[in-house]
């Protein structure tokens, strides 16, 4: 190995930072959207209406059985077809935008399983107590059950978000410029794979390691309620 050339990194840091920003944006969007849709799916799964149960179970099992890279590519190609069918116009979406959508619907399946076990961890009496206070189903869920479920599952939801943050690197499949994509594009041009890929690995490691330690501490703090 020759010398590790830091100037390749400093010369391109702006492009890399842009990539990292995109990765973070996709992560945060998919986390918020995924938790909202995932919670709805979990409520459907636990409802007494059979078709809703089937839909939620089918949705979750489907997305949990296919590789994420395949979903990323399939959505990127099929979404424009679908939009054209619905609106009659050709609407170019672009790889960057399609990834926001893909990660939101894909992660919803995983967040849904977490929220489901969160809801199931709330004692049944809480629902009865909600109804006894005269709350409707919606109020019981929103004001009594979900806040507790969310609190119990916060560490797991965050751990899933760290996984999601790493998985955004798979937008490589459609050529979007995320953090890893940016480093890869610089490598194609400057032919410095060692510097570029090592930088990506180190940055990912530092961020994910720090976050997972924080989650561990949070877990220890939250765990005392019962």
């Amino acid at each position: 190995m020759s010398d590790f050339d830091f100037s390749v990194i400093t010369a391109n840091w702006h492009f890399l930072a842009e990539g990292l920003r995109y990765t973070l944006q996709v992560t945060v969007t998919a986390m918020i959207g995924g938790i909202i849709i995932g919670t709805l799916l979990a409520l459907m799964r636990l409802s007494s209406i059979k078709p809703l149960q089937w839909f939620a179970a089918g949705y979750v099992n489907f997305f949990r059985s296919v590789p994420l890279v395949q979903v990323i590519l399939a959505v990127y190609l099929i979404l424009p077809l679908l939009l054209q069918f619905l609106t009659g116009k050709m609407i170019p979406i672009g790889a960057e935008n399609s990834a926001y959508f893909t990660f939101t619907i894909f992660e919803a399946a995983y967040y849904s399983e977490i929220m489901r076990s969160g809801i199931q961890s709330v004692p049944r009496g809480q629902i009865g107590a909600g109804y006894a206070l005269g709350f409707t189903y919606g109020q019981t869920m929103r004001l009594v059950v979900l806040p507790q479920a969310f609190r119990n599952m916060l560490p797991v939801l965050l751990t899933q978000t760290i996984v999601l943050f790493q998985d955004v690197s798979l937008v490589y499949a459609i050529g979007a410029t995320d953090f890893f994509g940016a480093a890869d594009k610089i490598t194609q041009r400057d032919l410095r794979p060692v510097e570029m890929y090592t930088t990506v690995a180190v940055v990912y490691f530092v961020i994910c390691f720090a976050l997972s330690r924080l989650v561990k501490r949070l877990q220890a703090r939250i765990a005392i309620i019962r």
Binding site: S169, L170, F180, P193, V194, Y197, T198, A201, Y204, C208
Partner: peptide, 14 residues
């Protein structure tokens, strides 16, 4: 704490 695709690239190119 390192994405799979990055790990594979490390093994292949770094």
């Amino acid at each position: 704490n390192i994405p799979l695709i990055v790990q594979l690239f490390l093994w292949f190119f770094v």
